[in-house]
């Protein structure tokens, strides 16, 4: 063979050769595995979809290992996926956040970039562009801390079935296509977002009220998807995106029929709007988790 020969034609022919059929055993084994695997809820996955950096994924994996060792519950019940995560990550996150340090010991109060179990006490955030401090009792973990998202989860609610999420600077996502593109022509102030949410038939908003939290002013409400209204997405109501924002980390938020959320929208005064969510996958968990989460959220302090 000489390199002058048409390499593309050779590759066409050569790659066409080889096995074409998967064995029945391999297919049946895969089917057996999926019957034992629980589907993940949708709204926490988009961060894994495009832009979560490899260090962050490694850190998150390390947290899972810590959870197994320290807490002793069965991680990801019902899931026996032994392979890699599905993250099709190729491009690193644009985040400038220092690489979180996965740790088997609880994050101390002086380690803002630490990812993992949190020691009881007051902590400061690491990478988020709207930094704050907060108090946690024992049992809380910080699995994500990036410039566009912080998650706080509790050991009684593993695998993100419930968590506190903090996101800065949402744009309203497309209402004509099920995508992470922003809906054109809509603003991104606290009032723009709250007024838009209240006016959407696709979500049911209750308990809207003004709130002061951590030195910031804003509004809080409980929301859930209206199961009788189908929007741009087949199973979820498309809500917010970081696409086109300064964060632009691939963040995308939507809510499905069962999820419950208490959402705060707070203005920082320097152009940011902070969204805090107390979320549960199941409506049955909401009251109990909110009871755990509310004191943590009430301790947030955004003052420098």
């Amino acid at each position: 063979m000489t390199p002058e020969r048409d390499i593309e034609r050779l590759l066409d022919a050569w790659l066409a050769e080889g096995p074409q059929q998967v064995s029945d055993r391999a297919f049946d084994d895969a089917v057996a595995r999926l019957y034992r695997t629980r589907q993940r809820r949708a709204w926490r996955l988009p961060w894994r979809d495009l832009t979560v950096s490899t260090p962050m994924r490694l850190a998150t994996a390390a947290v899972a290992i810590v959870a197994i060792a320290a807490i002793g519950y069965q991680f990801l019940p019902g899931s026996d996926v032994g392979g890699p995560t599905p993250s099709p990550t190729v491009t690193p996150s644009p985040s400038t956040t220092p690489t979180p340090r996965p740790t088997a010991t609880p994050c101390s109060k002086t380690e803002p970039t630490c990812i993992g179990a949190l020691a009881p006490g007051r902590h400061t955030t690491g990478g988020i562009i709207t930094p704050f401090s907060f108090d946690v009792p024992s049992g809380w973990t910080k699995p994500l801390d990036d410039r566009g998202v912080i998650n706080l989860s509790h050991e009684d609610y593993p695998d993100f079935v419930a968590f506190i999420g903090i996101w800065p600077d949402w744009l309203i996502a497309s209402q004509t296509s099920c995508s992470r593109q922003p809906e054109p022509g809509l603003g991104s102030t606290k009032d723009d977002i709250v007024n838009w949410l209240v006016g959407q038939p696709g979500v049911i908003v209750t308990g809207l009220q003004d709130v002061e939290l951590g030195g910031l002013s804003g509004q809080v409400m409980d929301i859930r998807k209206n199961p009788d209204v189908t929007g741009a997405c087949p199973t979820d109501f498309n809500m917010f995106t970081h696409t086109g924002t300064a964060v632009d980390d691939g963040g995308w938020w939507f809510i499905n029929d069962d999820a419950r959320s208490r959402m705060y929208f707070l203005e920082t005064g320097d152009g940011h709007v902070v969204n805090i969510d107390i979320q549960t996958e199941s409506p049955d968990d909401f009251n109990a988790f909110a009871e755990l989460a509310q004191p943590v959220v009430d301790s947030f302090d955004f003052t420098p």
Binding site: V22, A26, D29, A30, V31, R33, L34, T37, R38, Q39, R40, R41, A42, L45, P46, R48, D49, S79, D80, V81, G82, G83, P84, T85, P86, T235, N256
Partner: peptide, 14 residues
Amino acid sequence: FQDALVIAWRDLRA
């Protein structure tokens, strides 16, 4: 193939 099949099921809602 098996991992992809199971992971796709697990994350299909995404």
